[in-house]
Amino acid sequence: MTSENNVTDTNVKIAARDVQVYYGDNHAIKDVNVDIEDKTVTAFIGPSGCGKSTFLRCINRMNDTIDVCRVTGDIRIDGEDIYDRAVDPVQLRAKVGMVFQKPNPFPKSIYDNVAYGPRIHGLSRNKAELDDIVERALRRGAIWDEVKDRLQAPGTGLSGGQQQRLCIARAVATEPEVLLMDEPCSALDPIATAQVEELIDELRQNYSVVIVTHSMQQAARVSQKTAFFHLGNLVEFGETDKIFTSPEDPRTESYITGRIG
């Protein structure tokens, strides 16, 4: 176990200690401890209902929007407790961006979708700067070439894969430090999935990326670290190669060999 003191010494971006999540009476996440590194892709895998998405939503406090949800324990980003009373979730979410399972572009133009975050956070001083931010974000989202001629077209008119890349561009436009992805490819076809996976690999250079996936192949393809969740417990966490080749826990082995899940 790494102690809290040396968290800052290593490359740790997010540190979770004894995290418990309750939905009403249901104990959804039990005693989760994990260190997520900067400039790394970390994958959360596990059977559905195992709590991997729930834990992901704790990292940017999206669970706050659900009335019956209660979180205890300690999650720190750069050493700062994000559940501290002084923390404004609005500021936190600007720092920790999120991409959802189903592409959810706003019913606005492509440009306005991407500009939405920079506008509400006041990241630009004028139109030219905003244009710059939008272009940069769309390039980083690997969709610039496809949409540069129709920035004013509605975002909902794009194909599923394009929509998801637009949502990723939208998320990176606010210059986050961490990017959370909740099964970002589950609604996409294989070609779009490949494009998004490629994108995730590029994003690793600037961000700490956490991705929830139900596909072990995807986890193996895109991530450096993998965490296996089962029934609300973090069963095993380590180098992706190691998890997939020589798991320590029998449950992990059962899952990756297809016996449970």
Partner: peptide
Amino acid sequence: MTKSSLLVQDARTAKRNR
């Protein structure tokens, strides 16, 4: 971009919260 602490509410966030 300068690193800002989550524990300190910046002026813009305060305004938005108002």
